[in-house]
């Protein structure tokens, strides 16, 4: 089975992760799995959600 993963570029700064997750929450999107790869300046947020937008 193919799963769509969502990747988001985030600056490694206070509140950035919250902002991304809050956007999902406000739109009623749940998160199945989450991982973050980070550097001191930025990170990449990877998400798997039950119903990725547009299938």
């Amino acid at each position: 089975m193919k799963i769509k993963q969502i990747s988001v570029f985030l600056e490694n700064k206070k509140g950035r992760l919250w902002k991304a997750l809050n956007t999902l929450a406000e739109n009623g999107i749940n998160i199945r799995a989450l991982s973050i790869a980070d550097t001191s300046e930025f990170g990449i947020l990877r998400l798997i959600v039950p119903e990725p937008p547009n299938g």
Partner: peptide, 15 residues
Amino acid sequence: ETSQELFSDEVKEMV
């Protein structure tokens, strides 16, 4: 600014 075209989900690639 990063952009769609510039983005990769590999940290190594972004660096």
